[in-house]
Design a protein around this nucleic acid. Sequence first.
RNA 1: CGGGGCAUGGCGCAGUUUGGUAGCGCACCUGCUUUGGGAGCAGGGGGUCGCAAGUUCGAAUCUUGCUGCCCCGACCA
Length: 449
Amino acid sequence: MRLSRYFLPLLRDDPKEAEIVSHRLMLRAGLVRQSSAGIYSWLPLGYRVLRKIEQIVREEQDRAGAIELLMPTIQPAELWQESGRYDDYGKEMLRIEDRHERQMLFGPTNEELITAIFRDGVKSYKELPRILYHIQWKFRDEIRPRFGVMRGREFLMKDSYSFDLTHDDARKSYNRMFVSYLRTFARMGLKSIPMAADTGPIGGDLSHEFIILADTGESEVFCHRDYLALETPGADITYDSDLTPLIGEWTEKYAATSEKHDAARFEKDVAEGDRVSARGIEIGHIFFFGTKYSEAMGARVQGPGGELVPVQMGSYGIGVSRLVGAIIEASHDDAGIIWPKSVAPFDVGLINLKSGDADTDAACDDFYERLKAAGLDVLYDDRDARAGAKFTGMDLIGLPWQVIVGPKGLKAGEIELKERATGERLSLTFDAVLNRLVESAQEARKEAA
RNA sequence: CGGGGCAUGGCGCAGUUUGGUAGCGCACCUGCUUUGGGAGCAGGGGGUCGCAAGUUCGAAUCUUGCUGCCCCGACCA
């Protein structure tokens, strides 16, 4: 993409409403614009990141055996009256009346709708287990939206729902999602820690929040230091195998959010030097809630003995749009964002240091085509702007690699390759730069596979 | 929802105390000179000062009401 033809409104100054770093950088780097409190438009660059994150989530859901579908944003009130949550949910639910004066709502979550779909489609235990998921916009009319997309009112969420015949089977589904979450976040360069959590209005008795540590996190969290060094399961994980030992490894030591925190136990079970108390950002939350909805809504199947039993259910959420902010919180410096390669909006930024100079233009145009032909996503800064402005802008938007082409280097047949994360700059030939970038892309693909 | 604050061009701000017809920096447009980490000079475009009512010869400025947004707290992917 040529920057001269792109839509990338950068801000030089910090907008005053943005308090935390991810929010500031998202506005400055032209990722989002606020529409109203807690509601954002995703500008082209931000939308690219959002889609990359969404795709990783999707791939790891699919790998874990979940099946994608798509439910609507607008739901009928009756379903929620069936489950009893129409009244329970309170003002956080945006209620809407259609032209026939029918009560509707903008879905804050989808347990009711998915339970209704499942109940109407599945009658036998032979069709279990199933995990269904979708990635769809949700609306929760938060009392106080803040922190940009981290606590918006409208947000993109991946929500999965598991259906099983028995409690034991349901636990297996829970474990699948547990492991897939570890992998999902690791692929985005995030070190997530599963923590015992409250179930809140979703209900149920088994729940983990997936937390990344960050000073700007909304909640206080406590855990054993060992979790920070635990290795994420690889792509070769077999979801059909017994995941219990793996789950054990990730849950045996102390880890809890403030709601579930037990200071006495923390001090007893964890040696002083191993105690981590920090702030954290919740990026995923999984629940097992048994028959809470299937009972209320009559989602029953026939078991092997012909008996009619309510299905055992769980639900599993990932805040996709929140992750954009969370990743920036975890990966930035004074100059701007540092995107992990897996979610970067473009693989590489190509900087023409002297637009208008025939030789430099020709070299850049040619290399731009070569990079694209090699399968790389390139943002080519071909604007007629000064070098300094281009450097600053490119650092701000945080693409993993920068290729810097100017008349001085060209005389020696060399261009520069700069790695955003380390700041390391190398003078290399065009071919060497191309090779390195292709290698980097291949490595990234290998990590994903 | 309780407490606090803000609203003036795309962004950041001054002007409001003491009413006189809107200004600065950046960004944007034109030209010239520049050109490897946010250039210089000159010229230029863009704002019914959040909305409404009131006071006044005259309101960004005073009064009243409303709205939007931000921050702290309780609640939440």
